[in-house]
Amino acid sequence: MNDRKTTQDWMKDWQALQRQYWTAWADATRGASGEAPDPATPWHEGLEQWARLFGDASKQSETAERLLATAKNYVALMQSMLAAATGKAAGDAAAPAWTEALRNGLNLPGLDAALHDNPLARMLRELRGPGAQAIDQLSASFAPFLARAREEGLAWLGAPALGYTREHQEHYQKMAAALLDYQDAVNRYNALVLKASRRSFEIFEDKLAERDEPGRRIETLRALYDLWVDAAEEAYAEVALSAEFRKVYGNVVNAQMRVRSQIQQEVERIGVDLGMPTRSELNSVHQRLHELRRTLRRRDDDALVELRRELERLRTEVEALRRRPAQAKPAAARSAARKAVKTGNARK
């Protein structure tokens, strides 16, 4: 690379690299992905086109899906870093400039504003399991209703329920309160994750600065990526091991459980109305069954212990009898003789 190049020269270099990338991509996916796209297309979009080819289920489609999603993020991030590298002479930029390039790479176009500059939150959102998603969807579908409740000062949530439907009203008040509480808890959790994301950029910058010496400089995109991962994990661990996180994490879990519990009660009520067996009824049967099994086992175990004791006693007695045959036999013989005499006298 030449330090005297103009901005136009760098632009040409960058365009050449983009063409080179797409030519290589077309070669790699020949016959499958159609024509090579415009060189200015973001590189990760090639992977999206490629991903569509794997829409049909294969035995490992889930792994392929996860792999492609990760590769897309990786390529977008690396393209951003490479664009930054192409605009500068080798080693021309200080750590903050690279950190800025990293931010740009992590903020994909179309990204939810809440996830901007917040890669850890994005990862955690992608990670969310089906169970948690269902609760979040519910929370989202109630959002307008909950927003109105907030505007009205939440006063109605504490209003006494009256009349024929008072039980239902009270239940819905509790459910709304639980959802609001859950939203608040999630917001506090997200704020901490954002804090971890911000800290990750600081740590990344520090780690880069540490490498500003011969023999430690970063020469590959992968090494750069791995450094970013180290920084992100370090920042996350700092926050996740804090006393504040423990409290906030516990609150999210507990708040979600209260929402689930309210939903379960509603489902149970509907089940009862329809004459369907409920979770509570089954739990009750299972609990009784386990208690019964324990009682039976205890009896069996106690009986076995008693049998073993009895067996041990008998063994000891037999052993004792075996040890004194010499004394026992004459005594037994005398006793038998006395008995015979008595019997004979009686017959007479």
């Binding site: 690379m1 270099d13 690299l17 690396m78 870093m81 490479l82 590298a85 192409t86 080798a90 080693g91 021309d92 930029a93 200080a94 750590a95 690279w98 880069l208 600065a209 540490e210 490498r211 500003d212 430690r216 400089r217 970063i218 020469e219 590959t220 995109l221 750069l224």
Partner: peptide, 10 residues
């Protein structure tokens, strides 16, 4: 600087 990535190699 800390990063010496050659664009061609990248």
């Amino acid at each position: 600087g800390p990063i010496h990535i050659d664009p061609q190699r990248a």
